Computed example of a mutant assay.
Amino acid sequence: MAEANFSIIVEFTLLGFSDLPNLQGFLFGLFLIIYTGILLGNGLIIVITKTEPTLQTPMYFFLRNFSFLEICYTSVILPRILVNLWTQKRTISFLGCAIQLFFILILGVTECFLLSVMAYDRYVAICKPLYYTLIMNRKMCVWLVIGSWILGIPILIGLTYQIFSLSFCSSNKLEHIFCDIPPLLKLACGDISLEVYSIYVDAGIFGMFPFFFIFGSYVKIIATILKLPSAKGRSKAFLTCSSHLIVVTLYFVSAFVSYLMPKSSHSSATEIVFSLFYTILTPMFNPLIYSLRNKDFILAMRKLLPKCIGLVST
């Protein structure tokens, strides 16, 4: 079956947005603006948190890595969407689809772990402030980031190979805008219960475990904040955590709906909408959420922007 699959399917056709022929130009312009905004916004976070001395803390170190991850995440998806909309050629090779899915899975898992690391950083800062510099030292921060990037690679290589070893019944039309697990499984024929079981196991390990870790961290964080005697201190602590909580909610809710909800309960259009949330809209909102709700970042941006404008003018 696997050999027949490789000999028959040489490319896939991405049907997402193909039923909107009159909106192709508008969608191209919209996604181009979104992609440019993601690159500029997250790039600005990277530059400011790297160059501003007052932002050389673990929280901004993790934020810088998170912004870099968001750029990588969208760069795996959006350029292909833009090319498809511009050329009206919606095909992607079998190997190209496998590579795209692999990087989407790796970057998605890395995002889950990085969000967990950022929650742990806030937990230590608020619940164990006296030990913060001891626990969250430079070496620990670097290893937490490295672990977030590489931890899921071996298992996700196996999962990607497992999915693309299926027989797709000679159909190559994916009702989606990029190569993702749910639309690929819709094309598969025969018994795919093992693959579905593997997906749920991996989702539990790489999705639910980080989610419950974040949830447990914030239960302890909120309990500690409520014990603070100063109203101003409680407000500052809540404000520090609120940005991260907004990003966590946007990402995990949309990802869980896309991967774990029964497929009979929503259409292909609904799948596309929710996949846009966790792959594109979250990276787009990330700079706004973190910058507009962070006074230190706003002050650093006000200091840096005049310097940049001066360099451009000279």
Rank of each mutant, 00 (worst) to 15 (best):
L44E: 07
C169W: 12
L260S: 13
T49A: 14
E52V: 00
G16E: 02
G37V: 01
T57E: 09
A98D: 00
F215N: 04
F256G: 09
L82K: 02
K50M: 13
F6Q: 13
P53I: 07
N5F: 04
S7M: 13
K236S: 15
F113D: 01
C72G: 05
I155R: 15
F164Q: 08
L40E: 05
C127N: 10
I106T: 06
C241W: 01
F164K: 09
K307A: 05
L114D: 04
P283C: 03
E175A: 15
F178Y: 14
L250F: 13
F164W: 07
F274D: 01
V273C: 08
E70Q: 14
F277L: 08
S167G: 10
L63M: 15
I99P: 00
K227N: 12
T279R: 11
S193Y: 03
S242P: 00
V201E: 09
L187E: 04
R302V: 00
F102M: 03
A223L: 12
L69S: 06
R302S: 06
G29D: 08
L185V: 07
N42K: 05
V219F: 14
K236Y: 07
I92Q: 04
V247I: 14
I9T: 11
F297A: 00
A119L: 03
A188C: 04
D296Y: 01
K236R: 10
I214E: 07
H176P: 01
L239N: 10
F102I: 00
I34G: 09
I177N: 10
S167L: 13
L184I: 06
L260C: 14
L281N: 05
F66V: 04
P53T: 06
Q24I: 06
S165A: 15
S93I: 02
E111H: 03
V253W: 08
P129Q: 07
I106Q: 10
S258Y: 15
R302T: 00
T57C: 03
I246N: 06
F61N: 11
L23H: 12
P21G: 01
S198E: 09
E70L: 12
C179K: 05
I45C: 01
C308P: 00
L14Y: 11
I181E: 09
F113W: 13
T279P: 00
L134S: 15
L115C: 04
S267V: 10
L39V: 13
